[in-house]
Amino acid sequence: MPRYVMVIDQSRCIGCMSCVVACKRENDVPPEQYRTRVVEMVRGEFPRLRTEMRSELCNHCDDPPCVHICPTGASHQEKDGTVQIDRRKCVGCKACITACPYDVRYINEEHGYADKCSFCQHRLKEGKEPACVATCVGRSRIFGDLDDPNSEVSQLLRENSWRVLKPEVGTKPHVYYINQFPRKS
């Protein structure tokens, strides 16, 4: 079984928002709702400024509070490590939304079930990369199998110091961030 992860090279994100639109169209996300977002943080005073760019999505946590709280088993973890939602079983109680420390879940306004990034499970089955990864103009999002030592993600995590978001909540995310800022040369 593969172990799917995403590595996000923040220095390469140019804030184009292509991922955001691609995800919405690929996954038929209703108007004004999102499975992924792009954050831009600018610190400092003119003219000494510094910017952090990063895209965020479900972390497919290894210890996922959203799954733990779900009363029906709709939210569950698959063998490949991804966290998925079985829409049939979802009662729309929203517990998982409150449980997720990353605020990546929402209630699909058209259908009422809880929804979030699926790592584009349907595309993986077809041998394609997730939609946001495929279109990432900056090649900031890199997807692959962590169990394979030769995969690009494994290499990147070996060669770079990485971090995850909100480690203090103990969710063991599988979206890894590298290069928080562009290298100064």
């Binding site: 009363p71 049939r88 009422g112």
Partner: peptide
């Protein structure tokens, strides 16, 4: 009233999730 999918509420009782206080509650 708070459930977004009331018709699916029977799923509460097709599973028991030992770590879910929600499930316990049900």
């Amino acid at each position: 009233l708070d459930l977004e999918r009331k018709l699916h509420a029977f799923w509460f009782y097709l599973t028991f999730k030992p770590v879910s206080p929600m499930s316990w509650g049900a």
